[in-house]
Design a protein around this nucleic acid. Sequence first.
RNA 1: GGGGCGGUAGCUCAGUCGGUAGAGCAACGGCCUUUUAAGCCGUGGGUCCUGGGUUCGAGUCCCAGCCGCCUCACCA
Length: 525
Amino acid sequence: MSFEDNLSQQRFDKIREIEQLGFEAYPRKFAYSYTLAEIRAAYDHVSAEQLESSKPQVTVAGRLMTKRRQGKAGFAHLQKDGERFQIYVRQDEVGERDFELYKKLDAGDIIGVEGVVFRTKTNELTVKATKLEFLSKAILPLPEKYHGLQDVETRYRQRYVDLFVNEEVRDVFVKRNLVIQALRRALDRRHYIEVETPMMQPLYGGALARPFKTHHNALDIDLYLRIAPELYLKRLVVGGLDRVYEINRNFRNEGLSMRHNPEFTMLEFYQAYSDYRDLMELSAELLRETAEATLGGSTLATFREQQIDFAHLNRLTLREALCEYWPHGGLAPTLPDLDDPGKVRSFIERHNERSESKINLTHGHTLGSMLQALFEETCETRLIQPTLIYEYPVEASPLSKQKPDDPNWVERFEIYVAGMEVANAYSELNDPQEQRRRFESQVAMRAGGDAEAHGMDEDYLRALSYGMPPTAGEGIGIDRLVMVLTNSPTIRDVILFPLLRPEGDIGMADRLRRLEAGAKSGESG
RNA sequence: GGGGCGGUAGCUCAGUCGGUAGAGCAACGGCCUUUUAAGCCGUGGGUCCUGGGUUCGAGUCCCAGCCGCCUCACCA
């Protein structure tokens, strides 16, 4: 028997021993009168003397996280809802049977406690037990109590352990929920309605990315996991849902990094009779409101030792950003330089000389694509404070409306925070003829080898042909926003179960089988 | 996919020049009725990621592979 099996065997055998004391191994329910947080709220300011005279009766439950025995008494900490609370168990208070149970408890077990609130010598609020109830056994031993669970791989694979052992992990996901609540509230208040559109799509679109492919047996058709909900949401705007949003997963078949998980959560919203300027205002409000809801009223987040202030949203055109954030010293570009393809090419060459990461111009040499590539290489990671970059080249924006005075540029903006793109918005192209031409040029790019170019979506063209009001739409990357608001350096820390390679045979069923086979027979231990 | 780093007890980690594999926590037995990384005495616990190779001898050196992290590429 391996050592680990031995540890588990001892714990497994205790289930039988606990039953022999008259407790149920896996009882149905337990009615607690207070959460641990409620006790703390109710009695935190009550003195030891007052507690001594009032003797408040409570019933609590939770997972046993520490246990300190001292002869015929002992202290332990219960954990529930992310709160830890001390209990004190004395044999002369709980009786012999319950104290026998206490002696058999292991860290990780789940119990219920009836008792009286008091304060210890060190003034810690504690429940002195008058009765114990056994609720569930931890057969597997817990990680070390002081260092917790450190191994990154184990933390992601066994998030259930990570969550109850490392308290800050739970906080991150509670805050993630606050972020989503705040965004929903903000949009609901502005009379948006929330919808769900297909995650499995016969044609994928709305972004430039490679999809996951799957198959429906009964219809015998291939389907794609969506890379974006955009085209469906705009069909709804055609249908008269003037303000819609969806918070849901997108799937992109791409590499993993600290900023990329193949499935990620996006908020997309569309507002009819508006343009991208209206969404600039709305975005600033949404970011500020969300930060305040998450940071307890403050707009200041700390991310990687940097202070990030969501109270302000700087605005620059893409071309202005290139002039302002040029990283290579010497002469930075000027706005007129950026209208000259020859000069832009020389700036790219200067960048390539001075930087590890080279800009590769194989995909096309239009002025717009060069400027966008240069921006992404030189500026993106330097946009630490929330910054809105607007006016994008038309080439990589097949669904955006052009600027009235310059068809090479579209009414689009992106918002960068902490060097990451967290939002993307534009005035939606609603002219079906122009949309058809954009799709055609995308299809040509795809034929030319660009695997991420957009496909032709004829039903979308049909929808636009019924007339879509002028509309602006935006997507906000929830995971990245949560990263910044929770100071999580990697996206895996804000996704409960990030994608990992499967770990292979765990052998758990076999271990449980062996535990059952190895259990001490009948008589008490 | 390229490069770098890592994988040793259930957990957190040491392991020197290649010479019988260690500590703390957790566990088990004993003592202990206000402790809190409880304490004291004692005991048990290892597929050193896997598979080859070099060597009298490999946790340690070499090769291949697996898994993870970082980084680059990819990713508007």
